[in-house]
Design a protein around this nucleic acid. Structure first.
Lengths: 109, 109
DNA sequence: TATAATGTTCGCAAACCTACGAACAATTTT
DNA sequence: AAAATTGTTCGTAGGTTTGCGAACATTATA
């Protein structure tokens, strides 16, 4: 499994994009970015979905390295993983800063 | 259908992220960015997957507005949709330029 | 020790994604 | 007209995602 058909940066970028590829997860990131306290319950309140589903989305973001969680019983505190956030920012930055060939859309307009 | 549970920018960003959430599709975008000629066949050659699958990925990117295709029988020419590319760039830019609360990772060490 | 509060995990259903080969459509070449 | 070229669409298989409620684990409170 996990065979690598594409270059590592491409794989990583795709993985992060995938993690961000759901509105609930974008909403979570936006919420975490502006929050100081960030308990699970606060996040759940913000979203129109069941807590089990919120938990799943949080797992996905954690899996991708974009956030981290810490148990503070009985609550769980979440926040953005700043190091990886910066890396993601850089990867997406490079990606969107690619120089495009040809100034117009002449090839397919 | 298509009920809107999240704000439109969040939905749009998620949709674009989702479209970019596969290494083959990232690879396609990178390839198109540096190509002048961009026929289906050229793209297919570049990727380790069957042409039916390539066609599907291209559809997904087109659906998301990131690329466009034009029939030039018997070939099909693809290229990046620059207008939407710029918009995507802006959306991701805004997203990653969000100001994060707190300078450290104190909330979750 | 029971009860409440907070989240995670489980089990399930429905939908969606990824990949492929085969069949197809449209033109071009022979 | 037959054959080749170029891609798309179809059908199918297997896997993944999304969503939920219910059950669970853990600590805090009564």
């Amino acid at each position: 499994m996990t065979e690598k058909k594409y270059c590592i940066k491409t794989e990583t970028l795709a993985q992060m994009a995938k993690a961000l590829g759901h509105p609930a997860r974008i909403a979570i990131m936006k919420f975490l970015a502006k929050q100081d306290t960030c308990y699970f319950g606060d996040i759940h309140e913000e979203l129109p979905i069941a807590k089990a589903t919120v938990s799943q989305h949080l797992s996905a973001l954690k899996e991708a390295g974009l956030i981290q969680g810490e148990i503070e019983t009985p609550k769980v505190r979440y926040c953005i993983n700043k190091e990886n956030w910066e890396y993601a920012k850089q990867l997406f930055g490079e990606f969107f800063d690619m120089e495009l060939q040809k100034g117009d859309n002449s090839c397919c307009y």
